[in-house]
Simulated assay, not measured.
Amino acid sequence: MTSVLGAAARGAPAADPPDDPGGGPGDGDPVPRRPLAARLVARMGGPVVRIVLTAVAVFWLLPVLGLLVASLRPGEDGARSGWWTVFTAPAQLTLANYAALLSDGVVLGSLWNTVLIAVPSTVLVVAIGALAAYALAWIEFPGRDWVLIGVVALLVVPVQVALIPVARLLGGIGLYGSVPGVVLFHVAFGLPFAVFLLRNFFAGIPRDLLEAARMDGGRELRIFWRLVLPISLPAVASLAVFQFLWVWNDLLVGLVFADESSAPITVALRSQLRQFGGNVDVLASGAFLSMIVPLAVFFAFQRHFVQGVLAGTTR
């Protein structure tokens, strides 16, 4: 550098500087063409793509609109013509179907049974799964890795395999055909996924943060409650939404393990399918009523749900 500056001061031509080790393109070099995948990703936010996605979303919501309209039509009109005829004859819309549904003790009882099944199943799975996941992630104990392997192995066990053994077990302890029996089944099959999901999220928390809390005298339960849970709220909310939707929309477990007095709304609606032609108004209004609760839960936790789903991609 000194020789270059001295030569410039004496008026002598300076030596050419060494080649750029970075090998960057010069001003006259052509700009490299981006790959096809990169160009497609760049166009994803364009107006054409947004219009197409909006059209797909509207088309996807057509069955929901049809169910809503069918639930507001009298039974004879629903059996005689399609729901789209309401646009030419809107006077046929009525709330009589919902009034009759809400005055039906069987439907209201099944809807209440669904709440009694879904809420405890969700709370127990989230609470037990979070405690077990924290232990598997941050507490050293003998056989921890084998326990984790067992949890992962339980993820591939289908529900159908356990129907008969669990039915015999619940019958032996007097819980078959009751709401607690259905709750226990959902909790048992929801825990492996809960532990696996939350353990992976808890393991991503910086170790220094937990070590600092332990050095300040915090016990494991206090660290879990005051530190880990607030950080992991998106993952916990995602698990709660998943578990609640699975249990609320379940038919197989309720059909096998619940009797008439403890049957959920899905089983009650299935019993109306025996006379589908004469029960379109009952089925439509009952199905739409049972769909309102999970939709409300999803939209209430939507922000945390999206954060929990995307958490693994932002680490």
Rank of each mutant, 00 (worst) to 15 (best):
V236W: 00
P234W: 03
E220T: 02
A296T: 08
E211G: 15
Q275N: 10
V293F: 09
L221A: 07
D208H: 10
R270H: 13
V267W: 05
W246R: 11
L269D: 07
S290N: 14
I265H: 01
A237V: 04
F257S: 15
L283R: 05
T266Y: 01
R274C: 04
M291W: 03
W225H: 00
A258R: 12
G254V: 07
A240H: 09
F202A: 11
A203Y: 03
A203M: 02
P192Y: 14
P234V: 04
S271R: 08
R207F: 07
F257W: 15
I205Y: 07
P230D: 03
S232V: 04
S238N: 11
Q275C: 02
N279I: 14
R222L: 10
A212S: 09
V253M: 11
I265M: 03
N200K: 15
L197N: 02
L239P: 13
A213Q: 13
A287Q: 09
F257K: 13
L255Q: 13
A235G: 10
V253G: 04
V228H: 00
L209F: 10
D281H: 09
D281T: 06
A268I: 07
G204Q: 05
L198F: 14
F201G: 12
A268C: 05
F288V: 03
E260H: 13
F196R: 11
W246E: 05
W248I: 11
L255T: 05
V267D: 07
P264Q: 04
L269V: 07
F257L: 15
